[in-house]
Nucleic acid binder design. Structure first.
Lengths: 200, 200, 200, 200
DNA sequence: AATGAATGAGCTTTCATTCAT
DNA sequence: AATGAATGAAAGCTCATTCAT
């Protein structure tokens, strides 16, 4: 008796996710071009051929991975809407970022390597620009509300600082003082500190 | 008439540099693994075989490229020694960084992609750590001299901010306000601003 | 309630025939090697696995298909025995051929492609030779009876003409004047025409 | 010292032709899909990789082979123009065909297998139709000049007979009486025979 | 009887490297 | 010093076949 439709769907969903997870880890660790389909199959404990049962090509796996970037950006966006105070929003963003770094190292690395080499992806290459074009104006608003004198530059400074922290953390995870920097930023962008700086 | 020894050496030096330049451009644009030796030869306008007259392997080109990172770090180091005031040193570093970004985009990208994928280079992989281990203590000193209360965190904040700016600039060169950020940082880390912030 | 033995046999017979029919269409259209088992399953609307419930291998389907060639040759043979006059026999053969072309395009194409690439089939490869070795002597007899001066050459001429017509018809079905050629041949090999030609 | 341009061109021309020749033999013997690039390389005594130095893909080899069909058709066409008498033209065509069969067996087989499976080639598939559309009207003219009553049918009969002979010859080269059929056709389509048949 | 997820051998293609010139 | 034809190992991908259900 053949498996039911539901059983097959479950198997397919599980196997597909397995491939995605392992591919993400490998792409971010070794780079897309240096990762072989054999690597992915080996890492997932399945045969090479099975991968092509789920994805048309190695690049199609990357595309799928990439499309999830959008979802993350949307997640942040949705959460920010629930917060009123600009200080809360800034704090939320800091906490989210530091949390994300630890939990999604692979994702972040992949994002950076693709954003730095946009010809890796053909159709979806513009997503990075779109994200920043969507997010930055909102950041300007928040920093304006928080009373900054140069909200644009301050928002960029805030955003690039977080990226720079991520970058340096992944350069040398063992030695980078991630927690200290987390506290430092929370303090630096606390309502009290911001108000004090802006008063002068 | 055969070439003189000097002529040959000149030709060799010129050709070698040509290969290095073109390889750097391609590695940073497409990534090391995705760049073929044919790409490099084609871009340099020479034959594929000639490359092996100068380098043992594709990886050897990367090694050579990579070894130049040291020189850059040393350049900065030497210059900093000539400056007395910590504020001058900070300003020099800011200016150097922004200048470097524009002139050495390829180098910076290559550095990041290798630093994020340390298994790409076997022997030289530790250079990134060494650099940061050399540089950061000096930075701590400078920020201490400049009167910061948390010199370690502030030095990291400074350093990561610059990296974050670089990252975002290369993500979207057309739209990123590089000059504004340059001015913003010069002002933010000016002696006057630093003193004011530290007074409180 | 389980199926009865008869029901099962019926189902098996029907499914097997379905596979054979679809396989024939695909083999003749795309060639044996270029047809995948997936193609056959998809075309038959059944699962890939089911095919292996009926045939040991893709090649086994081809073997089965091929074995039906014999039956066709035997059909003609049996019919010819019922006819007395050599002119009737020739006419029967012409009519049978033109009818067969239209109804069994796929079969004819498969026959030709296998006959031209004899190493495709291992065990059954000699069938083509056997058929022609069986049929041609009978044809010689018929053409001798019909009064041809060079019965061997005339029989070959007759036989190859029909094959040539088939070939050209399948090359370009839309433009080839199949009906005209049918009439032309019937007239050319009519008793009256044959007698007239042989009189001279 | 590197090879001169001429030397390289010679090497390339020779190797390319070698690949073409071996590929033609294999495609015609085993079919395009069943022939592997390894087969071709092995048969040509070169490495598999070298083939891709000359052709973009296996299909590109087929395309090249196929494009030579045109040249053959043009050769016949040019020669026919030099002949005046329709009987001479017919005789030339017969002789050319029989000669071609023996010398270009592989070409003929490939032509037939492609013409019967037009989806094998994508862009060039229509060549077969074009050739016959070009050639047949000329054949009608010739048979009209030669005094045939039904020149269209007779021209088709002539043309298909030659194709049928080719087909049967390749089905069973050892036993098919090629020379006898050659003589038979020369006699059947001699000026004397044609005139006699048309007189009645 | 029937399904389709899974396998693995083998295919097409790529590319770092070698070598004759 | 320089070329590019040639190699071969390894990559991406396909598909006949198996097998758990």
């Amino acid at each position: 008796m053949p498996r039911t439709k539901e059983q097959n769907e479950q198997i397919r969903a599980r196997t597909k996710q397995l491939i995605i997870d392992k591919a993400l880890a490998l792409f971010s660790e070794k780079g897309f071009a240096a990762t072989t389909v054999d690597d992915i199959a080996g890492s997932a404990g399945i045969s090479k051929g099975l991968i092509y049962n789920y994805f048309d090509s190695k690049e199609a796996i990357l595309d799928t991975l990439w499309s999830e970037v959008y979802k993350i950006a949307e997640t942040i966006d949705a959460e920010l809407k629930n917060l009123k105070s600009p200080y809360d929003k800034i704090r939320y963003f800091i906490n989210f970022t530091f949390d994300f770094l630890v939990k999604n190292e692979n994702f972040w690395k992949l994002y950076v390597s693709i954003a730095l080499q946009p010809n890796m992806l053909k159709k979806t290459e513009h997503i990075t620009f779109e994200i920043s074009r969507k997010m930055m104006p909102k950041a300007f608003e928040i920093f304006k509300e928080a009373g900054f004198k140069n909200p644009t530059e301050e928002a960029y400074f805030f955003s690039t600082s977080l990226d720079g922290i991520a970058l340096n953390y992944f350069f040398d995870k063992k030695n980078f003082p991630l927690d200290k920097m987390h506290k430092f930023l929370l303090d630096y962008y606390s309502e009290k500190s911001i108000r004090k700086r802006n008063r002068n």
